[in-house]
Amino acid sequence: MIVKGTKELPASREVVWGVINEPSEMAKLMPGVESFEVTDDRHWTAKVKVPLGLGGLKMTIDFERLEERELEFASMRAKGKGVGALMDMTTSFTLSEAGDGKTSMDWEADVKIAGPVGSMGQRVLQPIVNQQVSQVLEALEKRVTEASASS
């Protein structure tokens, strides 16, 4: 399933770019992160707990930066494995000026779920994906605000 949207962020493009382009920064934005490890500047791994089922679904997710154009565009791939669920997600961010020191970010995520969890279908998974996305965006907004204030 594809989810997308636009978010206005209260920071300059440089600041936003600084956050989304840095693995250790991105890792901190993920909801339910229990631990993460940066392998190199293009790869990192996180252990997360997604709110699904009793006690949550634990997943190990491997991230890889795919493509970027400085200050404009970044894309990455996330492959996750948990009990009964195999996730493959590609996300992209496109930045543009929004005036007044703000940045407009167009984001898109293509999420594929396989395994028994996948057979629950969109009506179960969509709300969870939406919730995860909104948590990321909230955390991103908070982070760039902090970064902007301190820069």
Binding site: K112, I113, A114, P116, G118, S119, M120, G121, Q122
Partner: peptide, 9 residues
């Protein structure tokens, strides 16, 4: 679904 997951298994 579009990925070939059976939603009524």
């Amino acid at each position: 679904d579009d990925e070939g997951n059976l939603l009524t298994p």
